[in-house]
């Protein structure tokens, strides 16, 4: 039977247009490239930006991994994976090392990404200055002028309110010494993984119609102050109750008994440690 859709759902013309935006994004690291975000069979705000990039880049030899907040099996990850696999027939995996194309929401996998891999991050709000400047016209100008006081002001305000920078996620970064960029709502813990990454990182915001990129081996620096240096969430002393890992991003699980235990947020990582017979080893 002839498939209902073109390979990877999109017609080739649409793919070319998204690719042009991707290429421009790679050429200007951290710069938000507008693109004509398409209607998708899932609602905007559910990863359509990332999905459009993935569908545009995917080839027949790609091996796909999709995660949502670290989990391969969450409903969103499953439905996005189904859509991509269903319209391409490519293989998918939970194993980060095996994947060539990884679409993710809210996390960068624990296993260091390697040369040739592409990470596609889903972005709800691509504009790092939006919180201090509601107008798109104004923020465009601020980027053009490299005027990033607003991003620092937002961090300063958090320190005034909470005594420290408390951005749980989406802590702004400077890319290649030029553009300040929203890394998407990954925890601060993942920010350093963007710096000098061997893999290509692409970010897509479907609702806001923006694509941007961190090319491989690009300097990515988290914004901070002299007397409040950037710090990742403290995972010290936390050990995964399933695989025994330490030093990775943990979920806190509250048992009915009131006890608290920790578990790797990256479920693929955790599973491979257990499946690989390394369970319990730390």
């Amino acid at each position: 039977m002839k498939p209902l859709y073109n390979f990877a759902f999109f017609d080739e013309g649409s793919k070319r247009e998204v690719r042009r935006a991707v290429l421009k994004g790679i050429a200007i690291p951290g710069y938000q490239v507008p693109f004509a975000s398409r209607e998708m069979p899932i609602a905007r705000g559910w990863g359509t930006g990332g999905l459009q990039i993935t569908l545009t880049l995917v080839g027949r030899d790609d091996v796909l991994k999709v995660i949502d907040q670290g989990a391969d099996e969450s409903v969103n990850a499953v439905s996005i994976r189904k859509l991509i696999v269903g319209t391409t027939g490519i293989a998918s995996t939970d194993d980060t090392a095996e994947a060539t194309l990884i679409q993710s929401r809210h996390r960068i996998p624990e296993v260091p990404l390697t040369k040739g891999q592409t990470l596609v991050l889903q972005v709800p709000i691509p504009e790092p200055l939006r919180f201090v400047e509601p107008s798109e016209f104004a923020t465009k100008r601020l980027h053009a002028e490299k005027e990033y006081s607003g991003a620092y002001l937002a961090l300063f305000e958090e320190i005034m309110k909470y005594g420290r920078v408390s951005t749980g996620a989406d802590h702004p970064v400077t890319v290649n010494g030029r553009y300040v960029m929203a890394p998407s709502p990954i925890p601060r813990f993942d920010n350093p993984k963007m710096n000098d990454s061997a893999a290509l990182i692409l970010l897509g915001a479907g609702r806001e119609k923006k694509i941007y990129a961190v090319p491989p081996y690009t300097r990515v620096v988290s914004l901070d102050f002299e007397d409040h240096p950037f710090e990742v969430e403290d995972m010290g002393g936390k050990r995964c109750s399933l695989c025994g890992a330490t030093g990775v991003f943990m979920d806190e699980i509250h048992e009915d008994s009131g006890a608290v235990r920790y578990q790797c947020n990256d479920s693929g990582f955790c599973l491979s440690r257990r499946g690989g017979g390394k369970g319990g080893e730390a």
Binding site: E147, S149, Y152, L153, F156, E157, I159, M160, K161, F225, E226, D227, H228
Partner: peptide, 21 residues
Amino acid sequence: GFSSIANVAEKLIAAGNRNVG
């Protein structure tokens, strides 16, 4: 919507100051 301290500091930040204290 920002604290008054942050409002005053905004000009200092804009002038390149990066020391919160």
